[in-house]
Simulated scan of single mutants.
Amino acid sequence: MTIWKRDFTVEALNLGLRNTLCEALGMEVTVIHDDGVSGTMPVDSRTVQPMRLLHGGASVALAESLGSMAANMACEPGSYCVGLEINANHIRSATSGLVTGKARAIHIGRSTQIWEINIMDDKGRMVCISRLTMAVKSQNS
Rank of each mutant, 00 (worst) to 15 (best):
I3H: 02
I3W: 01
I3N: 01
W4I: 06
K5F: 03
R6G: 08
R6P: 05
D7V: 11
F8S: 04
T9H: 11
V10W: 05
E11Q: 13
E11K: 13
A12I: 11
A12L: 15
N14E: 08
N14Q: 08
L15G: 09
G16Y: 02
N19F: 00
T20E: 03
T20D: 03
L21Q: 00
C22T: 07
C22S: 15
E23L: 01
A24H: 06
M27P: 01
E28Y: 05
E28R: 15
T30A: 03
I32A: 05
I32M: 09
H33W: 04
H33P: 02
H33Q: 06
D34V: 00
D34E: 12
D35P: 00
D35S: 07
V37N: 01
V37F: 04
V37G: 01
G39R: 00
T40H: 12
T40K: 12
M41W: 01
P42H: 11
D44K: 10
S45M: 13
R46T: 03
V48E: 09
Q49G: 08
Q49W: 06
M51G: 09
L53H: 07
H55R: 04
H55L: 06
G57I: 11
A58Y: 04
A58G: 06
V60Y: 12
A61W: 11
L62K: 01
A63W: 00
E64N: 10
E64V: 08
E64I: 07
S65N: 14
G67P: 02
S68G: 07
S68A: 10
M69P: 11
N72A: 09
A74H: 00
A74I: 00
A74L: 02
E76N: 13
E76L: 14
E76C: 10
P77W: 09
S79G: 04
S79K: 15
Y80L: 14
C81F: 09
V82K: 07
L84G: 12
N87P: 06
A88R: 01
N89V: 06
H90K: 08
H90I: 05
S93F: 01
A94N: 02
T95P: 05
T95H: 13
G97D: 03
G97N: 02
L98C: 03
L98I: 07
V99F: 03
G101W: 07
G101Y: 03
K102C: 15
A103I: 02
A105T: 06
A105H: 06
S111E: 13
S111L: 11
T112I: 08
Q113V: 04
Q113P: 01
I114L: 15
I117E: 04
N118F: 04
I119P: 05
M120Q: 03
M120S: 01
D122R: 00
K123D: 15
R125D: 12
M126Q: 13
C128V: 07
I129H: 08
S130Y: 06
R131Y: 12
T133W: 09
V136L: 04
V136E: 03
V136H: 00
V136F: 02
K137E: 11
S138I: 10
S138W: 09
S141I: 13
S141T: 14
S141V: 14
